[in-house]
């Protein structure tokens, strides 16, 4: 294969995952959280596809496609939630949602 080894793709994916997780844990707007979540999912996809290439097995790509589908579904729901929150005039702040407080 030309170019970098598969390992470099994996490291890139790991960094992307870290960035995405930082976004999930540090930002308060649900929209940005959702976007960061997308980054994490994409990083996982990259990992899957890299391994598919490494082992010569297409199952990795199939898995990645499934992930994409699920991510799309999840984004739809997430956005639906945000819109519902906005409709009900709830402040769009993740820290405000304290209903799970025990």
């Amino acid at each position: 294969m030309d170019g970098p080894d598969v390992g470099w793709y994996l490291i890139l994916a790991a960094i992307l995952f870290g960035i995405g997780s930082l976004g999930v844990m540090l930002r308060r707007s649900p929209l940005v959280v959702l976007l960061s979540l997308e980054i994490m999912l994409n990083a996982a996809n990259l990992t899957l596809i890299a391994f598919a290439r490494q082992h010569g097995s297409l199952s990795g790509q199939v898995f990645a496609l499934a992930v994409m589908a699920v991510a799309a579904a999840e984004v739809a729901i997430g956005l639906g939630l945000i819109v519902a929150m906005a409709r009900r005039r709830i402040v769009l702040d993740v820290d405000e949602a304290r209903a799970l407080r025990g």
């Binding site: 540090l26 304290r98 799970l100 025990g102």
Partner: peptide, 17 residues
């Protein structure tokens, strides 16, 4: 123990991480 259930979603996310 209940204090860990702060209700803050972000703290849950951190815990998961």
């Amino acid at each position: 123990v209940a204090r860990t259930q702060s209700g803050l979603l972000r703290s849950y996310a951190i815990a998961i991480a």
